[in-house]
């Protein structure tokens, strides 16, 4: 059997694709911001003196990292609605993303914090810095600079994983693709186009993270060497 590609009939859908791509980006940016906050707090919690808090943060990280994202989505989305809490789909999708990426971020940030020599903290103590100041200036800033490549790599992976939220009918890029293919009957072409769009999004995101890194880490910009 011979198959003739027909990409032309998808042309009318490109505003939809664009809308889906923008929603994917939007979800990713929100998830990364909140995921970073959760990840950092969780990494701090795991280092802290409170045993129960450290155990709780550790359990969260391990559970998320050792179960599929799709199961987490179903658990949270269907679970919450069965408990009577009906979130808008966008909010629910972003919530699952935050929950997921927060754990991966926590693990990466923790690895970064482990590279901080105890002498750095003693020096900061001896200078009279308070504990929050030490955490911010002496532990977190260099840690984040050090793990920036793995952190942003994880964020790009999260962007790609967000396609799974189409399974709870989020109208992001994959969700759009699903409706386009059922309308146009050009399933194969639709998903090839969408694969290309994801690839472009991934490249754009990497570029954006690179430029952002240059902007917020002057040392990296000036010396060009890893910390």
């Amino acid at each position: 059997m011979k198959y003739t590609f027909d990409f032309a009939s998808l042309q009318e859908y490109w505003p939809e694709f664009l809308r889906g791509a923008l929603m994917t980006l939007e979800m990713t940016v929100i998830a990364c911001v909140f995921g970073l906050v959760i990840g950092v707090l969780c990494a701090i919690g795991r280092r802290g003196k409170r045993k129960w808090l450290a155990a709780l943060c550790g359990a969260y990280v391990e559970v998320v990292r050792n179960t599929p994202y799709l199961i987490q989505i179903f658990f949270i989305f269907f679970g919450l609605s069965s408990a009577g809490l009906r979130l808008p789909i966008f909010a629910a999708a972003v919530l699952t993303m935050v929950f997921n990426v927060g754990a991966y971020t926590a693990e990466i940030v923790r690895a970064g914090m482990d590279t901080i020599h105890p002498g750095q903290i003693e020096a900061a103590e001896a200078l009279g810095l308070s504990v929050p100041q030490i955490y911010w200036d002496v532990i977190l800033r260099p840690s984040l600079e050090r793990v920036y490549p793995s952190l942003t790599g994880q964020f790009v992976l999260m962007m790609l994983s967000s396609s799974v939220t189409s399974q709870i009918s989020a109208e992001e890029l994959t969700g759009v693709a699903n409706s386009v293919q059922s309308e146009s009957f050009r399933s194969f072409e639709t998903f090839i186009v969408v694969a290309g769009l994801y690839f472009v999004l991934a490249m754009l995101l990497k570029l954006a993270f690179h430029l952002f890194g240059q902007a917020i880490f002057p040392r990296r910009r000036r010396l060009g060497t890893p910390l």
Binding site: M1, S163, V164, A177, Q181, S187, I192, V194, A195, Y198
Partner: peptide, 21 residues
């Protein structure tokens, strides 16, 4: 390309692609 594409999309491309041929 593979690392820049969601696995779900790879799955759809394979599923529908092989289906149509």
């Amino acid at each position: 390309v593979i690392q820049g594409t969601p696995l779900l999309i790879v799955l759809f491309v394979v599923y529908f692609g092989l289906g149509v041929v």
